[in-house]
Amino acid sequence: MNKFGFTTQESRAIDYGQFDDRLLSYVQHHEPTFLICMSCGACTATCSAGNLIDFNIRRLSLLIRRGEILQLSNEIDKCMLCGKCTLVCPRGINTRNVIMLIKKGISQIKQSENQN
């Protein structure tokens, strides 16, 4: 679990002073639309995977912005890429690209950390 150089923190307070922005800058560069999310939750409501298991696709964009890579890597594999979220998104976010980029970004981060 601690592969990515994380330690569990005692306090629940988030320190935005030093968060991990590797994934944020990667996703933002390739799919900036994820920034315009207004957290309406329509994607989570319609989600085919969310129908079967506890999975909140809306929170992914929040997790990227907060640099919570560990949490993301546990969540991201639940998505089935069915595309319903893209169809209901009132902001026109290209959600499936965001998912694919998170997957790729995490795999790259894992690779580089394994090398070090």
Binding site: S48, A49, L52, M80, L81, G83
Partner: peptide, 23 residues
């Protein structure tokens, strides 16, 4: 009607063949 996994085709189109196989 209520819930079921996706058919797997969108995953295949995205190149996630092994994942699609599971569905």
């Amino acid at each position: 009607e209520d819930k079921a996994p996706c058919c797997g085709r969108p995953l295949m189109q995205a190149g996630q063949y092994d994942a699609a196989e599971k569905l």
